[in-house]
Nucleic acid binder design. Structure first.
Lengths: 254, 254
DNA sequence: ACTGATTCTTCCACTGGGCGGAAGTGGCGA
DNA sequence: TCGCCACTTCCGCCCAGTGGAAGAATCAGT
């Protein structure tokens, strides 16, 4: 029956590929899933049925599949996300009030910045990020901050992965990125203008926990005309300090 | 090599069993996982490694495993949870302010009530429920409300599954439960005293969406001495109505 | 109602990936 | 140094998983 070369991925990898197909989308048809996971329809059909039987995926009345409550249950208790979000929320709300633009909280996971929270004012720029998004480290405010404080291997991997130039201002050269990292580490804050989104600039700062390690980053994304207004840098600094303090960080006093 | 009867579960089921082991716990060691998932250590080891390779689980510095950001990403966008939480939050906060006790929002998933949100006042009773918990329908305020408005098959399955009697007041008999369901449907509110937690009572009401279907339930769990104080029933009713209205529900006006 | 396109579901025989007992490794406490 | 426990790796057997193909269901256009 099977003519061509069999798919060398393990069952688990195929199941995960199906799960991955759902990251960032509401609902998918069987063929969508099969296409995204690069699986033959019959295989996708069978594996999706297994997810459904477990409750990780549910089939709607429209025949399309959605992420089910069981996966929600599993994810919602992710310790890092839970703790950081809970602690950071009041500071993020203050920051939103002070700026009226997009406010972000993100952590690094591998080579991506994962957005734990996004609060947005009414007239904020249209941005790609949302809660649960994963964006590249080199092209976002939070990403650059997280990268600047990550182990050097991470930087090497980012370079090795050939970072994509989204806009003319996106940094992709190793030298430029290195300089920028050093800058962020010494200033304690990062300002990017039109590096990922046209018409937007971003100010980001690092959040530290009780051990002094950088565990997250906060940022504001605002309309580029407002660049230079002092409340952004000030607000982001205060939010980052506040959250760090709430996490038990005590800055070296010497 | 393999001597005894092989495990008849499919790879997928084994992977899911591992995932299930994490529901409601922060971190597990490999042997914990193997025990909970009823898998030989070597099998658990291999499958856990697959989860880790994908990013669904992460291994901490302590050697224990935790749910990773990838599973969080997947779950956090679960459409029902996302939408209901976002819309309901302000009403739940009002309800918390009015009562100062535990406030819950839950949906039915299969034979369980899954808690989408829990807000708690400072002196609230110690309760088992938390965000992401799954509790039996017959033994919780929200569960009874959800059961009362569920398809009859669900009720039959609950009965068939021999509901457990947690406390003397827990309803487990088919006749009693049926009567209670009818009561809830006609009064539009449910009051339970010490059915799951000693020293606590619960008042719950149904939330409907634009189609008129019951999609969730809100409840307050409070110290049993406060039973009868009017703000509980009133507050729960108002919250349920408010959320329903925000979801687009228009009560029949005749 | 007929036709054809599209999407989903089921079937089945071949085969290599998964299986798990057993042996190996490493760390810790006595 | 020894024993214990928790984890990791190994390896050969065998059946679960595979995916092409055929069948069923659904839908749109004429």
């Amino acid at each position: 029956m099977s003519g061509g070369a069999a798919d060398s991925r393990s069952v688990a990898e195929k199941l995960f590929a199906i799960a991955d197909a759902f990251v960032g989308r509401e609902s998918l048809s069987l063929s969508d899933i099969a296409a995204r996971a690069r699986l033959p329809l019959s295989t996708a059909h069978r594996l999706v049925a297994e997810w459904v039987a477990w409750g990780g995926l549910v089939r709607g009345d429209d025949g399309r599949y959605r992420v089910g409550m069981r996966l929600w249950q599993l994810g919602v208790r992710q310790p890092t996300a839970l703790r950081l979000r809970r602690i950071a929320m009041p500071y993020l709300e203050d920051l939103l009030e002070a700026t009226g633009e997009h406010v972000h909280l993100a952590v690094r996971d591998g080579l991506g910045a994962v957005y734990l929270e996004r609060l947005s004012g009414p007239g904020a720029v249209s941005a790609i990020s949302d809660v649960g998004s994963r964006l590249p480290l080199h092209a976002t405010g939070v990403g650059l901050v997280l990268l600047a404080h990550a182990p050097t291997e991470v930087f090497d991997e980012v370079i090795a992965a050939k970072p994509r130039k989204y806009l003319p201002n996106t940094l992709v050269e190793e030298r430029e990125l290195r300089r920028r990292m050093a800058e962020i580490r010494s200033f304690g804050i990062s300002t990017s203008v039109e590096e990922l989104t046209r018409g937007a600039f971003s100010i980001a700062a690092a959040v530290r926990d009780a051990t002094g390690e950088v565990v997250a980053a906060v940022s504001v994304i605002a309309h580029v005309e407002r660049v230079g207004e002092p409340q952004f840098a000030l607000g982001v600094r205060m939010a980052a300090r506040g959250i760090s303090a709430a996490l038990g960080y005590r800055p070296p006093s010497d």
